[in-house]
Computed example of a mutant assay.
Amino acid sequence: MSLAHTILGFLQQEKMTGYDLKTSCFDRCIAHLWSADQAQIYRTLDKLVDCGWITCTVEIQRDRPNRKVYSMTEAGKAELIRWLQCPQPLPTLREPLLVQLFFAAQLSNEAIVQLLEQQLSVRNEKLAKCQKIQLPMLGDRFTSREQMMQKLVLDFAIRREQTYIDWLMTAIDVIHHQGDERVENREVN
């Protein structure tokens, strides 16, 4: 996914500063889907201005630094529509825990379960954060169609986390039972 297109999507809804994009959009609205730090956002805003997809207006402020407010151009709207209509390739997922598990046969069952339980804790926290997200997050200017699309995406994020949690609980159970079988096999021999 393109950070540039994500920013265009937000600027399509309203004019914003880079700070607004970071705090109101990335941190509060789509952190469960896509993260970006302040430096990435500002670099991308500069590139979008250079491409002619957005404009920047400097607002003079008293007792505070001047604000750069970004808004989308017609060329930016056209680019966003073009991107929205393009099929996206499947992402390459990099799951460090799964790679660890792939090679974890040499660890004790307790060590494997500990890894799984740590991940379970983190996933439960992420699920709770997703469940606390209240849409719409960017103001009341959303149409019901926009709300519906955002709700569908949030529902997917919640289901994805719940599926991961379910799998982790199954994996923990399998490891526990596998340990019971090894003990039983030793007792038989």
Score class of each variant (00 low, 15 high):
125 E>Y: 05
155 D>I: 00
114 Q>L: 10
64 R>M: 11
157 A>Q: 10
152 L>I: 11
60 I>H: 09
159 R>K: 13
106 Q>H: 14
127 L>A: 03
123 R>S: 15
15 K>E: 15
141 R>W: 12
63 D>H: 09
182 R>Y: 12
159 R>S: 14
91 P>E: 04
136 P>C: 03
110 E>W: 09
24 S>G: 08
89 P>F: 02
20 D>Y: 02
175 I>W: 03
3 L>W: 08
134 Q>C: 08
18 G>E: 04
62 R>Y: 10
76 G>Y: 04
61 Q>A: 10
104 A>T: 00
87 P>V: 00
78 A>K: 07
146 E>G: 08
146 E>Q: 15
144 S>E: 15
43 R>G: 01
179 G>E: 13
179 G>C: 06
31 A>G: 09
174 V>G: 00
28 R>Y: 05
117 E>I: 05
134 Q>M: 09
175 I>E: 15
84 L>R: 14
40 Q>F: 02
155 D>G: 00
35 S>A: 11
31 A>P: 02
144 S>P: 06
84 L>T: 09
34 W>V: 14
10 F>V: 01
93 L>V: 13
153 V>M: 10
156 F>G: 04
116 L>M: 02
46 D>M: 08
71 S>F: 05
3 L>M: 08
18 G>S: 04
96 P>G: 03
166 D>I: 04
148 M>K: 13
45 L>G: 00
129 K>H: 11
82 R>W: 11
92 T>H: 07
72 M>I: 15
30 I>M: 04
114 Q>F: 06
74 E>L: 13
86 C>I: 00
83 W>D: 09
62 R>C: 07
128 A>L: 07
151 K>I: 01
1 M>L: 02
92 T>L: 11
24 S>R: 13
21 L>W: 02
44 T>R: 01
112 I>S: 02
110 E>G: 10
93 L>P: 01
161 E>S: 06
35 S>N: 12
91 P>C: 00
146 E>C: 05
178 Q>I: 03
93 L>E: 14
132 K>I: 02
93 L>D: 07
86 C>E: 10
130 C>Q: 12
153 V>F: 08
